[in-house]
Design a protein around this nucleic acid. Sequence first.
DNA 1: ATGGCGCGGTCACCGCGA
Length: 261
Amino acid sequence: MKIATWNVNSVRIRKQNILNFLVNEKIDVICLQEIKTINEYFPFDIFYNQGFIHSYVRGEKSYNGVAVLSKIPIKEKNFNEFCGLKDSRHIKIVLANDIIIHNLYVPAGGDIPDVKVNRKFQHKINFMKELIKLFNYHKSKKMIVLGDFNIAPSEYDVWSHKQLLKVVSHTKLETDYFKKLINTVPLVDIVRDYFKMDKKIFSWWSYRNKNWRASNRGRRLDHILISKDLIRFVNSVIIYEDIRSENNPSDHVPISMSLDI
DNA sequence: ATGGCGCGGTCACCGCGA
């Protein structure tokens, strides 16, 4: 089973890019974030025609929105709300093979990393707190938690640790909550484990930098976290950096994990 | 140190992303 996560920044604008990726990389389960549309406008047909006959979409007008498309049957579909809001940032599914998948879109957090003056940052921190509570009573040995966390946890997950310590996504408060989340279940950051611990790896490069590859000012904001019991089944982890160079790209690239299950 | 781009939508400006 090959599973991938991708913040696509509009599923309608990006549907051809997504379809090409799914076919070229032989993906079985894709978890999307920021689909930016309501379920009625989701392009189900083009994915269905390529074998993704199972799906769970939780859309929203203009903002957020998460979805799972799968070749493997889905036997349970559910979602949680966070921070008393109705925004679509989470879905949970159980596949026919009993693997539990949580697809997440954590709030970006705005500009100022101070919960007292920035409501968006406060939202992000509260979201992480509620997520930790949720996983306190949702522990499983067959769990995959993935998506756009909008947090770059280690110093090798940003282009400049020193310059980003005061930038939302890499502050100590955020990275501490990320670690706490991982330790709660516990989960393993399989993407970081698969690469060398001190190798810089990114999944996002700003749209504002046209010369993104040369300057390489990226961050690793997208993650695949898995139960320890699943590690022995992992046979590959891929970050598709080249997809950032496609025509009409998202600012995030997909990441996949292949399991012998 | 700053600004740079791209998405959706009460649509040509604005909110939002990170």
